[in-house]
Simulated assay, not measured.
Amino acid sequence: MDRNKYLNLKFRSLIILLLVAMSSFATAQEALRSSVSPEFRNGLQEKILRYIADKMDLSLTIYPITYMERIGLLRAGKIDIMVGLKEHELPRNDFIYLKPSYEQLTNSIFVLRKDQNKFKSLADFKNHTIALTDDNSAVISDLNNQGTKHLSASYLAQKIDLLTRGRVDALIHFTQVTEIKLKELGLDSDIVLANLPPFSVRDHYIRLSLQSPLISKKEKMIQVIKNGVVNGDFKRIRMQHYIETH
């Protein structure tokens, strides 16, 4: 095995062992323990975790580890919650979804104004090209099966650039974020919502480990989520994060 790879695996193993060793201490300190990907420290998920911890009067302990490592620790109760999950994303009996979802994200199709009434249904995109984030193989397969082409673009700015240059006929992205970005760029008169229903609606949930010492606080956490939704707090966190990072 490559020496660097071996050292990296050894380092990860040490981190996980350290988490296990610290778990009882974290519980004694009434901490909310969670994790985010190392590349997304201080990102949106961490801000949501801070909000929940503050509302529950808990300190917050964040471990920067990979998604798969997170799942293992959540199953074992070594972290308490994960955020940003779609329902049934982790169909196991080791966790419970806390409802309602803390946010609902709508993906919509945007087109040039001159094409606003050109597409009456998704079937009308046959032999046309759509810019989208390549994160859902089932959606891409459905589009390909109906004869719609796609170009992968990870960022909204890329999608807008492809559309304005005529490389694609439409883009798919989160509705509210796209509308704000288009207004910032002065393109809100040139690129508009297609006269179609939302492309998709995605609910994001918080999942609580059944092995977590915070399982006794489940109802309080659910109430925090409900209040955050009703008061629009989660929407404000997302939009503030977008403003800060763009």
Rank of each mutant, 00 (worst) to 15 (best):
M1G: 15
D2W: 05
K5C: 12
L14D: 12
L14R: 09
I16L: 14
F25I: 13
A28S: 15
A28D: 14
E30V: 10
A31I: 04
L32Y: 00
R33C: 09
S34K: 01
S37C: 10
L44V: 10
E46K: 01
L49Q: 10
A53D: 03
K55Q: 12
K55H: 01
L58C: 10
I62F: 07
Y67N: 07
E69T: 13
I71F: 00
G72A: 01
L73T: 14
L74F: 09
A76T: 04
G77V: 01
L85S: 12
K86D: 09
E87L: 15
E89R: 09
R92P: 12
N93A: 06
Y97D: 13
Y97A: 11
L98T: 02
L98E: 05
L105I: 15
T106E: 11
S108N: 07
I109V: 13
I109D: 07
F110R: 01
F110T: 03
Q116S: 08
N117A: 10
K118G: 10
K120R: 13
K120C: 11
L122E: 01
A123F: 14
N127L: 09
T129I: 12
T133E: 11
I140T: 11
N144A: 07
K149W: 12
H150E: 02
S152P: 14
A153M: 07
L163E: 04
G166V: 09
R167V: 11
L171Q: 01
H173D: 15
H173P: 08
L185Y: 11
L185G: 10
D190H: 03
I191V: 11
A194V: 05
L196S: 07
P197T: 02
P198N: 00
P198M: 05
F199A: 03
R202H: 13
D203T: 08
L208F: 01
S209H: 01
P213N: 02
S216D: 04
K217D: 06
E219W: 05
M221T: 00
I222P: 07
Q223M: 05
Q223L: 06
V224F: 07
G228C: 02
V230H: 06
N231H: 09
D233R: 02
R236H: 05
I237T: 03
Y242D: 00
I243S: 10
I243K: 11
